[in-house]
Design a protein around this nucleic acid. Structure first.
Lengths: 244, 244
DNA sequence: CAAATAGTGTCTGTGAGACATTATCTA
DNA sequence: TAGATAATGTCTCACAGACACTATTTG
């Protein structure tokens, strides 16, 4: 069929005439707590995969979501109430098997927030909780979310090697030792103290905001820091750890 | 409504009952030719945006595409006949304005291939051609493809600084000088000869395959190289150029 | 020979890794 | 005082940048 104009064409076009994939947004929200990297999961209350644990997320609402990022922010806020933490797209995955309802695409995001008990921000019930990543082996996850979590975790590890991502999982202010622990846990590696401090301090991405008691209540007081404005997108020219 | 089982639920579920975004895959295919970075565009023959230039791409076919990557490979192959070049996902963008047909999401991929005249691989007509990136200012692009191209180009530039991506735009074998030019053009920067050669050769990602005449037909013959197997995913621990 | 291109020698500077040492707190 | 934690001093090594130099071809 041919049309005389774009307007003509659009007048008769109806998206529902075609088989289109389902489209969802899923958010892997990470935090650090008790020395472990944890991810926020919700227990599904409806079919499909009712009762299984899943990443916060779901269908795009084309009537209220301005764009993909806005949709991800909405999903994040619905579950945590947090407004503007680190939230970025990881990748998209789509195939005919990942959702029993049909061919589906999900835009996977990852978010980093300082730890808070779920009771503090989950409006509804106890259907959401933090899961340490190393305890996910024993539970049933919905859809391909085990794989999505692995993908997001991998990206997190990689980006930590050349950014300051870990500042987002710490409450402010923090000490350099706390920051180093955060780097180490997100990278799953051990870093050398002097190298770490040199790297961070030379980059001029932190500002000192006084002194505080050390972590264990014992020992020499530590300097407290918070990220300098604009520091979040600092990129290091060398990757850290596993160094060459 | 409640259902007794997952099977029950799925039996009544129909994706077409809901307003869902359109889903497309678009591929930014880059090459290097005559000293310029070029991207392959096709002239749209149908509404919407008939007559404008666009990235190769289009709707997912949920009946024939196994997954997003397969769909991207299909789009690439339809336009270039190339089977397995570098092809990777860049990001996804979705909003209500980018396509006049409605709220739409596109999964953006980028591909790198050695240059070949379009006549060599475009089955149909002269509806496809290579466009040097610096000549896109003067033409009308469909949808948000100008922005997509910019996003893919940015990713290309960034990844070139710590990978060997540029080997994919060269015919094999190639000289180190040709490879350096490719790096420089993809990064839009000038590199220092000795540093470049040291970096590449120390990484042991190339294998020497003889000698050839120099680029201009004059001067000392140059050693010829091709990528060693498994070299494609080599990651450098330091970014190149703009160095620190 | 000159011009053009390929390839090397070598010095400097930056920053990571290693690890020993000093500083400052509590019990 | 000892123990714990924070912070620094300093040596070595890898490698990027700079740039002068040598090597091998054609005309």
């Amino acid at each position: 069929m041919t049309y005389r104009s774009e307007a003509d064409f659009l007048k008769q076009y109806n998206a529902r005439d075609y088989d289109s994939p389902l489209v969802t947004v899923d958010v892997a929200i990470f935090t650090l707590h008790e020395g472990a990297l944890q991810v926020l999961l919700v227990e599904r209350g409806d079919f499909p995969h009712k009762g299984r644990w899943a990443l916060p997320g779901g269908f795009i609402d084309i009537h209220s979501d301005d764009d993909l990022d806005a949709c991800a922010h909405r999903k994040l806020k619905e579950k945590t109430g947090v407004a503007a933490p680190l939230l970025e797209q990881v990748c998209s995955k789509g195939n005919g098997l990942r959702d029993p309802r049909g061919w589906s695409v999900t835009a996977l995001y990852m978010a980093l927030i300082p730890h808070a008990p779920t009771a503090d921000f989950v409006a509804s019930v106890n259907d959401a909780r933090w899961w340490p990543l190393d305890q996910l082996g024993g539970i049933e996850l919905a859809f391909d979310h085990r794989s999505l979590i692995a993908t997001a975790r991998e990206r997190l590890k990689n980006k930590t090697a050349y950014t300051v991502l870990p500042v987002h999982v710490l409450k402010r202010p923090f000490t350099l030792t706390q920051l180093q622990r955060a780097f180490e846990q997100l990278m799953d590696a051990t870093l050398e103290k002097k190298s770490f401090r040199r790297r961070i301090l030379n980059a001029e991405i932190l500002e000192e905001v006084g002194e505080g008691i050390p972590e264990g209540g014992r020992g020499r007081p530590a300097a407290l820091y918070q990220p300098a404005t604009g520091s979040e997108q600092h990129l290091f020219a060398r990757v850290f750890g596993e160094g060459l």
